[in-house]
């Protein structure tokens, strides 16, 4: 398990990285935290001829707030974002999502941008960003493209990132006053989920649901959004019965994955349960905010 040979560059600026990416062409690949890429190199499942290391570009790893927008550099470490009070207060769903990503040593190196770019269908971050309707800022020698989350993740290990492009930043609207939760079922905690659900809930002054978002991950090549469910919750007081009734509207036909060890039928059973738990937990947290 030793990687095939490759050349290595460690640019100091984004421009330098983009230059390299263009000049080295399609055989080049960027490395972020390496937590998914290095295993693939070791297994020789990935065989880039050139590796461009983004770890020495400080401008890619800042988290800052501008007005109501949070800008998260793609190279922000998962551990850093998890520990960030800005993230916890303004983007609680991201905080809860990251709790489920790997383990302390993998989070210490793994990046937010890497996770989104890798686009594992079971990964938590694409679901989180879809729930936030975040924008992905892609940079290349040709300039910048801003892609909304629902057009960014295209399929299993497939994103809108074009050759020559780097995911530079994720822009998310701050959502300080809502409850959020990410609930998942995996066979071993810290591993990829069999089904996950991400929920955001904000309440009106009277305690009814003002707005909610529900995403289910790990059941199809891309995370799935279930607006029908959350629309039905709007204006309602949360209860187990209300949530269960709304979840009747979940279109289980959208679930796709069917493996020998985890069947489609099973995912269709647990998907709604995860969703119910996420919604109820997010609601509880939203209530807590109001108090």
């Amino acid at each position: 398990m030793k990687p095939a040979p490759f050349e290595y560059f460690a640019p100091r600026t984004l421009d330098e990285a983009l230059d390299l990416l263009e000049s080295e062409g399609s055989e080049a690949r960027v490395i972020a935290g390496g937590q998914s890429l290095v295993p693939m190199l070791a297994l020789r499942l990935a065989r880039p001829e050139v590796l461009i290391d983004l770890n020495r570009i400080p401008e890619l790893s800042r988290i800052r707030q501008e007005g109501s927008t949070i800008h998260i550099g793609a190279m922000t470490r998962q551990a850093h974002a998890l520990a960030s009070s800005l993230v916890f207060e303004q983007l609680p769903l991201l905080h809860y999502g990251l709790q489920n990503v790997g383990h302390p040593p993998t989070r210490a190196r793994g990046t937010l941008g890497g996770s989104l770019s890798h686009a594992d269908p079971a990964a938590e971050t694409p679901a989180v960003m879809l729930a936030y309707k975040a924008d992905m800022v892609l940079k290349s020698k040709q300039g910048e493209r801003i892609i909304p989350a629902d057009e960014f993740t295209l399929g299993t290990f497939d994103t809108a990132i074009e050759p020559g492009e780097i995911l530079a930043e994720i822009r998310v609207q701050a959502k300080p006053n809502e409850g959020a939760a990410l609930v998942e079922l995996s066979r071993r905690k810290g591993d990829f989920a069999m089904a996950s659900a991400a929920a955001r809930v904000s309440l009106a002054a009277d305690g009814t649901c003002a707005e909610a978002h529900l995403i289910v991950g790990a059941v199809a090549p891309v995370p799935l959004r279930f607006d029908a469910v959350t629309d039905a919750l709007k204006g309602q007081k949360f209860s187990e019965a209300v949530v269960r009734e709304a979840l009747e509207l979940m279109d289980l036909e959208l679930f796709e994955f069917d493996n020998e060890d985890i069947s489609l039928e099973y995912r269709r059973k647990i998907g709604p349960v995860m969703a119910e738990r996420a919604l109820l937990q997010a609601f509880k947290r939203a209530e807590g905010m109001q108090k």
Partner: peptide, 13 residues
């Protein structure tokens, strides 16, 4: 054929 899919108990199990 890897530790990612052959799962052995971790501390949580």
């Amino acid at each position: 054929g890897t530790f990612a899919d052959y799962m052995m108990p971790n501390v949580y199990n």
